[in-house]
Design a protein around this nucleic acid. Structure first.
Lengths: 222, 222
DNA sequence: ATTATAATTTATCATTTGATAAATGTAAAT
DNA sequence: ATTTACATTTATCAAATGATAAATTATAAT
């Protein structure tokens, strides 16, 4: 009768197809590494998965391979090409476009897994984030600068090239939105506003503020 | 004659006073942990210091103790009380005050050591950052909100309490300024603006933008 | 029911890591 | 020059870690 009173739930061995198991390990690894960083041990990860440690190595021959799979799943092809169109669609008010874009963007990045793994990878590795920042600058920041010029009837880039301050103003908005995720998922402190309020506030402030900036820079409506 | 041709510089044993050595180890640990995270091994740290690993344990009985010392040196008492006065000094234009404050603040936080250790500690631990965020909110964010109300002749807090959007607008500026450090010292990508340009841009945009926000919220000049 | 495939576990290893004790050698005091 | 104090190193350890090989057992095909 003591057999059923064992301390462990006993979790009998369960077989899955290679595809399923591979996926299960990857999903678990994302959650585990997001919490513990890439220095979390494969033994602990296995325990977290409810599986023995050598099994992980059956599907990912080295820890490095597993980490690469985590990177790919989280960051590769997560930039939706439709977002570019949203920003440039001048049939809509610019504020609406920016809110729309950042709402979709935040649906991707404002998760504990994404933010934390992104920072961990930035701190450890650097290639991924070094590649990511220029992508953001090219596809978002720069585009916002251009649209802000147009929305305020300011000269186009062919007349006057983008100034550092214009770039940084967008980066500041962008960084502020990113940082909201850091406060929530890294520091884990209460935030006073919802994501919608955050985006609305950041976009409103930017659009209003960039006019003052343009004035300060001596840009005049054309 | 082969003795002088040894591969190692031979670096003969050097004695320092306990205070000096303790300091040397701490400084090295900050740099080392900032680069490698707190999972960097004490063996590697010793090598980095040009010292044997047990020596570290003579001065810091456990790795935890050393890490705590790193925290304390970087984050404890780094908030200068004079900063509070700068923000609240209504004899100066608000823009000048904000620029002044953030210039000094950035002198502290915009260093690879500070930014990286702060993020590492946030990701691993959380107590420190959980304590730090409310400090910033109380002594900076909130104060900026109040001063922005005053500078725009808007009702005081006794009339109308601070709205989430007002708070978030400042947090966005603040986060944007922080994120500039992340781009430089974590992602290690080129940034287009200098720290001065960044601060000027962020502050200008915020001050201009918060007026639009107030308008949107229905706050009227009194 | 028996067999065959292969998913999963058990057992094991070399290295690394945080930590300790004993030996060594430097610098100051006598 | 000798002695003494103690800063530093050498030697070592148990536990943890990434990784591999062999044994086991669940599942599907026969």
């Amino acid at each position: 009768m003591a057999e059923e009173l064992d301390t462990k739930p006993k979790a009998k061995r369960q077989r899955f197809s290679p595809e399923e198991r591979r996926r299960m390990i990857l999903e678990g690894a994302i959650e585990f590494f997001a919490e513990n960083g890439f220095d979390g041990s494969t033994h602990q990860l296995a325990h977290f998965l409810g599986v023995t440690q050598p099994l992980i190595y059956k599907y990912y021959p080295t820890k490095e391979d597993l980490i690469d799979a985590v990177y790919e799943d989280l960051f590769q092809n997560r930039w939706n090409d439709e977002w570019d169109g949203i920003l440039s669609d001048r049939s809509r008010p610019i504020k609406e476009r920016l809110v729309d874009f950042y709402t979709r963007y935040c649906e991707v990045i404002h998760s504990p897994d994404w933010i934390r793994v992104f920072l961990y990878s930035g701190l450890k590795n650097m290639e991924i984030n070094q590649r990511y920042a220029p992508l953001v600058e090219e596809r978002a920041i720069r585009r916002v600068c251009i649209e802000a010029r147009d929305a305020n009837n300011l000269p186009g880039l062919d007349k006057i090239p983008l100034a550092n301050e214009e770039f940084e103003a967008v980066w500041t908005m962008h960084g502020g939105i990113f940082y909201y995720g850091v406060r929530r998922f890294v520091y884990r402190v209460p935030v006073s506003a919802s994501t919608d309020e955050l985006i609305n506030g950041a976009v409103t402030t930017y659009l209003e503020g960039v006019q003052g900036l343009a004035r300060q820079m001596g840009l005049t409506a054309s």
